[in-house]
Design a protein around this nucleic acid. Structure first.
Ligand SMILES: [Zn+2]
Ligand SMILES: [Zn+2]
Ligand SMILES: [Zn+2]
Ligand SMILES: [Zn+2]
Lengths: 158, 158
DNA sequence: GACGAAATGATATAATATAACACTTGAAGA
DNA sequence: TCTTCAAGTGTTATATTATATCATTTCGTC
């Protein structure tokens, strides 16, 4: 069994570096400016594998000495979501970093209620079940929200 | 192709009556009090097949002359969600009536962005794809949120 | 360097949700 | 029937999440 969630003692600095590198690539490929503010917000989101709320981000920015207001944060979030660099978790009103921003995908999110971590899956069986169900009732899909709450393997077994 | 959504000219009074009858049954079976306030809120939710927000409900109550405040509405909603008489749509911060409250189910919600209607499906293929994916990664599911946005058959073809 | 579009700053406010405590109601037992 | 107490509701205040609007700054392009 492969756990979607990162290993306990993994080198998270590498996650952050890799995410930043990919984000810069994607931004460049889209002719979009990965400004300082956007980089700050993105980096804060990647401080953990948990989802983080807009106001938690705002607090962190202010703690760093950045004079930011809610619109600043929401604009950065809008930009990052728009490029697919982060995803919004509807059931948490929170955001977390995507680790495969290069290809378009409809992801599914596993959310552990104990450790708070979020993991993204791109599972064809889930996707095709959803699309088949939609086709069967003549529904034209534009967006999907699939959020699965419970206990991750670590939290369920320890 | 069977459309999940109700027919255009259907007799919606029957939807409301049926929902009320079922709600009373479920409440009774659970030894729960279907009070006047709860019935009012429930009935307002069933005024349409759309999802409705807490504050829209509050406005409607006040328009009816009921002196209600936000907690009143949220308490009624909490009760109704708890019994499975209504469902919350996370991506809309809104609520809509369940038409099969008798049996426990993990539903999937189709939401039309044009007409605003919501339809609930209980699709085993979707459910089992989700559960299989969770099993494969050792995740213990406690709740699922599956919300599908797009155009219903009517809106896509007219 | 001048220009204009994009980004950010700043202020205000809207929309969604809950905490806390007082009062009322209604089921259940004495 | 009366008492009691838990459940439900009223009321006020406040927390949390999100956006509208207009002023200013930044940055690539000419
Ligand atoms: Zn990591
Ligand atoms: Zn966990
Ligand atoms: Zn109807
Ligand atoms: Zn429609």
């Amino acid at each position: 069994m492969t756990d979607l969630f990162p290993e306990k003692g993994h080198d998270h600095g590498r996650c952050i570096d890799s995410a930043l590198r990919q984000a810069e690539d994607v931004a460049e490929a889209n002719n979009a400016r990965f400004t300082d503010m956007r980089r700050r917000v993105f980096t804060l989101i990647w401080q953990s594998h948990k989802a983080i709320t807009a106001y938690e981000l705002l607090d962190s920015l202010q703690a760093e000495g950045v004079r930011a207001q809610p619109p600043t944060v929401y604009r950065a979030l809008e930009f990052l979501v728009g490029l697919g660099l982060i995803h919004r978790i509807e059931s948490l009103n929170a955001y977390f970093g995507c680790d495969m921003p290069h290809h378009e995908h409809l992801g599914q999110y596993f959310i552990c209620r104990n450790c708070g971590r979020v993991a993204e899956a791109v599972n064809d069986d889930m996707s095709s079940a959803v699309h088949a169900a939609a086709r069967a009732v003549g529904f034209r899909i534009e967006a999907t929200t699939i959020e699965i709450k419970g206990l991750c393997h670590d939290c369920a077994t320890h």
